[in-house]
Lab assay of single mutants.
Amino acid sequence: SEEWVEIALRLLELGREANINGTILNLHKEEIEELIRRLLKRI
């Protein structure tokens, strides 16, 4: 399964939302940290 691709796409999506909203992603901080942890486990 290409889970890391899904994770990377989700991170990009959150990054785009952050640019549009001008936020520092506090809302998504925990989700982002969890996604990155899952991503690093696969490398």
Rank of each mutant, 00 (worst) to 15 (best):
I24G: 06
L35R: 02
H28N: 10
R10P: 01
K29H: 10
G15L: 15
R37K: 08
R16L: 13
K29Y: 14
R16P: 04
E34V: 06
E13Y: 07
R38H: 04
L11Y: 03
I24Y: 05
I32Y: 02
R38E: 10
L11S: 00
W4K: 01
S1V: 14
R42W: 15
I24N: 10
E2N: 14
L25R: 11
S1K: 11
G15E: 02
N26W: 14
R16Y: 13
G22Y: 04
E31L: 14
E6Y: 07
N26T: 04
L35S: 01
T23E: 12
L9F: 07
G15P: 01
H28P: 09
R37I: 10
H28D: 12
L11I: 07
L27D: 13
L35F: 06
I32A: 02
R38A: 12
W4F: 09
E17A: 11
I7T: 01
I24Q: 03
L35D: 00
L9E: 04
L12V: 06
E30G: 08
R37D: 11
G22E: 13
I43P: 03
E17Q: 08
E13V: 04
R42N: 09
A18Y: 03
I20N: 05
E2P: 11
L39V: 10
H28G: 06
L40P: 00
R37P: 01
V5S: 02
L35W: 07
N21K: 08
L12D: 01
I24V: 02
V5T: 04
L9W: 07
K41I: 11
L35I: 05
W4T: 02
N26Q: 11
E34D: 10
L25H: 06
R16W: 14
S1E: 13
L35V: 02
L25I: 12
E13A: 04
E31K: 04
I43Y: 07
V5C: 15
K29Q: 11
L39I: 12
A18G: 06
E33W: 14
G22P: 14
E33N: 09
R10V: 11
I32R: 00
I24H: 10
E34I: 09
K41R: 14
R42H: 13
V5H: 06
E13H: 02
N19K: 12
L40H: 06
T23L: 14
L9Y: 06
L12N: 01
E30S: 09
E2V: 07
E13D: 05
R37W: 10
L39Q: 00
E2T: 09
N19C: 14
A8T: 10
A18H: 08
W4D: 01
N21S: 05
I7V: 05
A8L: 15
R42K: 14
E33S: 07
K41N: 05
R10I: 12
I43K: 03
L40I: 11
L12T: 03
W4V: 09
N19Q: 11
R10D: 03
I32K: 00
R37G: 04
E34L: 11
L35C: 08
L39T: 01
I36H: 00
E3W: 14
E30H: 06
K29P: 14
L14S: 02
I24E: 08
A18P: 03
K41H: 14
L39E: 01
W4Y: 02
A8N: 01
E2R: 11
R38W: 13
L35M: 06
T23P: 10
T23H: 13
E3Y: 09
E34G: 04
E2D: 09
R10E: 03
R42P: 09
E30I: 04
R38N: 11
I7P: 00
N21P: 08
I36L: 06
G15Y: 14
L12S: 02
E31F: 12
E3I: 13
R38I: 09
G15T: 07
L40W: 09
N21A: 13
I20K: 10
T23Q: 08
I36E: 00
G15R: 02
E31Q: 06
E34K: 05
L39R: 00
E17H: 06
L11M: 05
E31P: 01
I43S: 03
E17G: 04
E31M: 05
T23N: 12
L27S: 14
L12R: 01
A8S: 03
H28L: 15
W4C: 10
R16F: 14
E31N: 04
L11Q: 00
W4Q: 00
E34A: 06
I7D: 02
N21M: 12
K41D: 13
L35H: 01
E34W: 04
A18E: 03
E30N: 04
E34N: 14
L27K: 14
V5M: 08
R10T: 03
E13Q: 08
E3L: 11
K29G: 12
L39N: 00
G15A: 15
I7E: 01
G22C: 04
R38Y: 09
E2L: 13
E6N: 11
A18V: 13
R37T: 04
R16K: 10
A18R: 03
R42M: 12
E33F: 13
L9K: 04
L14N: 02
E6F: 12
I7G: 02
H28V: 12
R10K: 10
E30Q: 08
E2H: 12
E17F: 07
E17L: 14
I20Q: 05
E6A: 06
L25M: 08
L40K: 05
L12P: 00
L11V: 04
E33I: 13
N26V: 08
L25Y: 01
R42L: 15
V5L: 10
E33Q: 08
I24F: 08
L14E: 02
R37Y: 05
L27W: 13
I32P: 00
G22T: 12
I43A: 05
E13L: 11
T23I: 11
L11N: 00
E33T: 07
E3F: 15
I32L: 07
E31Y: 13
L27R: 07
R10G: 06
G15S: 07
N21Q: 07
I32W: 10
A18T: 05
L39W: 03
L25D: 09
G15N: 05
L14A: 03
V5E: 02
N21W: 14
E17Y: 07
L12C: 15
R42T: 13
E6M: 06
E3K: 10
K29E: 09
S1F: 13
L39P: 00
R37E: 06
A8M: 11
W4G: 02
E33A: 12
L40Y: 05
N26S: 05
N21T: 13
I7M: 05
L12G: 01
A8D: 01
I43Q: 03
I36F: 09
E13M: 05
T23M: 07
N19W: 15
N26E: 14
K29I: 14
L11A: 02
W4P: 01
N19I: 15
R10N: 03
E30M: 07
E2M: 12
L11E: 01
R16Q: 06
L9H: 05
I32H: 00
I36M: 02
L40N: 02
G15M: 15
E34Q: 07
N19H: 14
R10A: 12
E6K: 10
A8I: 15
E30V: 06
E3A: 10
L35Q: 01
I7S: 04
G22D: 12
L11G: 01
I24L: 03
L12F: 05
A18C: 15
L14P: 01
H28C: 11
A8E: 03
R42S: 12
A18L: 13
L11W: 06
L40G: 04
R37A: 08
K29F: 15
R10Y: 09
R38M: 09
N26G: 08
L39G: 00
L35P: 00
L25P: 11
L25F: 03
R37Q: 05
R38Q: 10
N26Y: 11
L40A: 08
I20T: 08
L25E: 07
L9T: 03
G15H: 09
R37S: 03
I43V: 04
L9I: 06
I32T: 01
W4N: 00
E3Q: 10
L12M: 07
E33H: 08
A8F: 14
L25G: 12
R37N: 04
I43C: 06
S1P: 09
H28Q: 11
I20M: 04
V5D: 02
A8H: 03
R38F: 06
E3N: 07
G22W: 06
H28T: 14
K29T: 12
N21Y: 02
L9M: 08
A8Y: 09
E30P: 02
L27A: 09
N21V: 12
E2G: 12
H28A: 11
I43D: 01
A18I: 14
L39F: 06
E33R: 12
N21L: 15
A18D: 03
S1Q: 11
I43H: 02
N26H: 10
S1G: 09
R37H: 06
R37C: 11
V5P: 01
R10M: 10
R38V: 07
N21G: 08
A8V: 14
K29S: 13
E6R: 10
V5Y: 10
A8P: 00
I36Y: 03
G15F: 15
L27E: 08
L40R: 04
R38P: 01
